[in-house]
Design a protein around this nucleic acid. Structure first.
Lengths: 300, 300
DNA sequence: GCCGGTGATTTTTATCATTAAAGACACCAT
DNA sequence: ATGGTGTCTTTAATGATAAAAATCACCGGC
């Protein structure tokens, strides 16, 4: 078997569901309509039709196909939900790298990793290639991959790069015309910050998401696909570390909220220089947090 | 045949060369040494040895292997130099895309492209994946790739991103301590600019490389793998376009040299603000040149 | 005669089996 | 002990293959 016939099996079962909602003797929709409804190609529909025909569930051919009997549970095709999706793979891989302190410089083993992550080797290969630009991974001369690792160096450079991008975003933001929708969004985010500050004792866990929204908003004013691409990597990594460093979480979060508010206030006062200074301070704190989180994790 | 036996063939021929430099009856070095000398694994060496043995060129086994007769031309194994390397692939692909022979949004065909570029389909797949982050290419939902294309939008965003990175570099540069080696390098590059300016009438073609060196120097003061990674993409694309837009090349280049010099002068005067302003102007020109080069090419 | 449909065929890509190459291990000779 | 060979295992690049998508050709009813 070459490609998995998962799509065929899923379509088959979906078709059974559809038939269950119909009466015996009813005519079936056209192949094109069925294909559109299930979101697959006509080829799959036809394979399913053939199977249903040989199973005695439908009869007829060409334009006139009718339901012969109601499908029952035994007609369903089992489908092993073995392989995971691409996003899941990304999450698991990063989790593995960032959590298990995989030593820098380790040679990666495609086959083994593919088994470990439950994906076909091919998919892993492609995934690793796509990670190439992120600097976490390197192609070895004669085949194979090497994990460069999430080192302190890496974290520092990532933070600095983030700072470059985000300070630029702050400058752009401060120069936006007053009727730009971002100002309204900023107001809303400010209210959310104030709100969370009031119930910080109980809900300090909510900060991680608010933090994400705040930084996303700031960066959203820079319409640039490269910035957006990096933003994804950055927020991913920072998000991951947020989850682990539980020390002082409540106080760190409260402090971060207050830092955000100083930035927002400066922006709303259209004081670009002040906003930039506040943002610089906040990003420095953030970088320190990331580094200390790494140190803590290393010892654990 | 699974993997190509190119390595075996190359090693075989290399071994013949090595034997030609020896006398009949001489003993051969150990397998480990041979492997190290040819840069391949012992497995390959052993295969070659076996072949040489059955061809009657060497005799003996184990530690004692001796040359039996001098190899001649007929002993060489032919090797089809079919597949091209990875760098070559990158060059060809970018060439193909950037020349606009391809409309934006086209679905890419792995097999066809692989044939066109003389690489195994697999290699192309991996290459495309590695290009994913550059924003030129997109993965379609159910397999396949789509070329987003080098559009005007893309060029604008690339230029703006370049500007963010490079202005940051300029700021860092201006703040370097006086004994930093970059200052000496800057002096040298300044001299090169002055030199080229004197012989601009004849050698204006040399500017492209000088331009590359100048921008590389400026960015080199930011030690950051992400910056470096993007710098590669950026310089590649700008370099490619330089090659095509031949209109006014001599005058454009002279103007660019003068712009570089104003930046250099401001830096040497430690006037960060002025340097930033000059750099901003230069990058704006550069962006315009890129865009007009694209328009020109589009009409052609 | 055109439009929505089916039948048959051609492309195209994801997976699998295969094999060259690399590396590990055990043993041998000096 | 050290440097070597013989044997075996592991690994990743390739070609073959099958699933799915896309395309083409044709048909029948209004």
């Amino acid at each position: 078997m070459a490609r998995t016939d998962t799509r065929f099996r899923q379509s088959h079962n979906a078709m059974l569901d559809m038939l269950s909602a119909m009466a015996v003797g009813d005519g079936l929709p056209s192949e094109v309509q069925l294909a559109a409804r299930l979101g697959v190609s006509r080829t799959v529909i036809r394979s399913v039709m053939q199977k249903l025909g040989s199973d005695g569930i439908i009869t007829g051919s060409g334009r006139d196909k009718r339901m012969l009997r109601r499908p029952n549970t035994k007609d369903r095709l089992p489908l092993r939900e073995d392989y995971i999706g691409r996003d899941e793979l990304e999450a698991r891989f990063l989790d593995w790298v960032l959590r298990f302190d995989v030593p820098a410089g380790t040679a990666l083993n495609i086959t083994q990793l593919a088994r470990q992550f439950m994906v076909p080797p091919h998919a892993l290969q492609e995934f690793l290639a796509s990670l190439g630009q992120s600097g976490l991974i390197e192609r070895r001369a004669r085949g194979g991959w090497r994990l460069l690792g999430f080192t302190a160096d890496y974290a520092v450079e990532l933070s600095e790069f983030r700072q470059v991008l985000e300070l630029n975003a702050i400058r752009v933001f401060a120069a936006l015309p007053d009727d730009h929708p971002a100002w309204a969004a900023l107001s809303a985010v400010r209210d959310e910050h104030l709100d969370l500050l009031h119930r910080i004792e109980r809900d300090f866990h909510d900060f991680s998401r608010l933090d994400g929204r705040f930084h996303a908003l700031v960066n959203s004013v820079v319409r640039n696909r490269f910035v957006a691409e990096f933003q994804k990597v950055i927020s991913l990594i920072f998000h991951y570390h947020y989850q682990w460093d539980k020390t002082m979480e409540r106080y760190r979060n409260e402090a971060a909220i207050r830092e955000h508010l100083t930035i927002i206030n400066a922006l709303q006062a259209r004081d670009g220089a002040e906003a930039e200074a506040r943002a610089r301070a906040h990003l420095a704190t953030s970088k320190e947090t990331l580094l200390s989180s790494m140190r803590g994790h290393h010892l654990a």
